[in-house]
Design a protein around this nucleic acid. Structure first.
Lengths: 270, 270
DNA sequence: TCATTCTATTTATCATGATAAACCGGATTT
DNA sequence: AAATCCGGTTTATCATGATAAATAGAATGA
């Protein structure tokens, strides 16, 4: 169990010497993989981990911090406290991914190029798996989305609710990878899209109305379990939305996402 | 600049009290966003950061470790050492993403469902931007892929090279989001696919031959700058590959990716 | 029964070194 | 000119507490 700290003094080759904390992090990861530790399982307490890997307090704390940042554990105080394995939260993954995209200058067109391809397939694939509650939620969401006012804050809320519709569909899809991709796109649109303040609010309202209309059709087709119609409608929806966003001068706000922004993410669904 | 450490003693609401190290991490991130610090820029040295945020050595070290794990900085020793901002490496992002997918049981079909949608569009979009070097690389890659032997290790290498073909195409695409999605898929296939040892090697060879054949056609169409033909060919390629992988009983090895596995990732292309 | 208080446990953060290792740049030697 | 050595700087890791805060569970009281 103890780590073999072979540090060759001058390794001119590729692999750089890892820090002890990173080695310990890897050891713990291997432990998780090998012993098939599931979310909820607890790691030994700090003092024991120190003994286990023969490292000091600071080193084990850095290793735990690493795992915490990666979203693999949470650490709590008190008796029965310590590190608990958790399923990596989607929000955390999104944040880490956003770090990557921060340096890339992703445009709205870039996102929609992928969204156009994925969403129709996602929606069609979800249809057979939509529960009655989810179908209700889709219909209820449409009501919430009904554009009534042109107040700026309401327009933002409306766009949020609009994305919730797509998240409900995503939640029902059995393909975790496709689901993740679409949830990621939704999250990016939700958090990073900013519209030019110059565009007239009427345009926004028109956009909202168009969305509500096609969402209603999609919900109806979903209720009828007509996957192919859902696919067709969603395809049209994506084309249309893509055009609107372009006209409304939607841009992505390129910035790093902070943990503190992630907290209020707790929508009713999953 | 100093952090306001308002810790309300009992906040029954949602947002949990963040640790100092995490607050400092956020402060530094905001610094990066606000001052538009580019890769290569250096943060102040540890001692100064301690003063700047009024925290102890351990806390600032945890904050820096957090940023390091997120791939936003590297830390080096010596004079002119300290934290340097870097572009988040793709490999790091892939690793963090794999942490998320580790708990999700993604199947081969799941990956290919997305790949079928994305790859044809990616390839078509890359065609106008392929440099002569990249076109050469595509053609050269086909030669390397030529299945000659049925030795197991060679079969693995062949599959790797096969994926390199797709990475070359991805590298030329101007859409960073689409590019990332496809590179991620390639990386997952490269690292996590395991085939049943029972399937006869002839099948693998047949798979390899089919790939070489269609790759050659794609390369030819790319050389002719025929985007639409590339799209059509790639679509067929994806359908075919999907079938082969199913027949060869390809599975995804669900495990956590370790940093030490990431080191040898340095292919010739960007 | 239910709510409150107490207490032991464990992490969070700070403090303060000490030693080792890596590293840049300049001086020295070959 | 090139290789080597050396000194000062900075991080890496360890050591060893001390105090504070959170928490689970037991003890207590209405």
């Amino acid at each position: 169990m103890t780590v073999d700290f072979e540090k060759m003094p001058k390794q001119p080759g590729r692999l750089k010497i890892q820090k002890r904390a990173d080695l310990v992090t890897e050891e713990i990861k291997q432990l998780i993989t090998q012993k098939n530790l599931l979310p909820g399982a607890k790691l030994p307490m700090e003092r024991e981990l120190q003994r286990l890997f023969s490292v000091s307090k600071s080193t084990i704390r850095e290793a735990l911090k690493s795992l915490e940042v990666q979203g693999l554990i949470t650490v709590s105080t008190g008796p029965t406290g310590g590190a608990t394995i958790i399923e990596v939260p989607l929000a955390r993954t999104f944040q880490l991914l956003q770090n990557y995209l921060f340096f890339k200058e992703v445009s709205m067109e870039d996102i929609y190029a992928a969204r156009r391809l994925l969403e129709p397939e996602l929606a069609a694939g979800s249809v057979p798996f939509l529960s009655d509650e989810q179908l209700d939620a889709l219909e209820h969401n449409i009501e919430t989305c009904q554009p009534t006012s042109q107040e700026p804050s309401l327009l933002v809320r409306q766009r949020q609710a609009d994305l919730d519709f797509h998240d409900i569909l995503a939640a029902a899809n059995p393909n975790p990878f496709l689901r993740f991709a679409c949830e990621l796109i939704n999250e990016m649109l939700r958090r990073l899209v900013v519209f030019s303040t110059q565009t007239p609010p009427e345009e926004h309202t028109k956009f909202g109305c168009a969305n509500v209309k096609i969402h209603a059709e999609i919900a109806k087709a979903a209720r009828a379990r007509d996957s192919e119609r859902v696919r067709t409608l969603m395809k049209a929806h994506m084309e249309e939305a893509s055009e609107y966003v372009k006209r409304l001068d939607g841009r992505l706000d390129g910035r790093l996402i902070l943990d503190s922004e992630m907290a209020p993410r707790l929508r009713p669904l999953s």
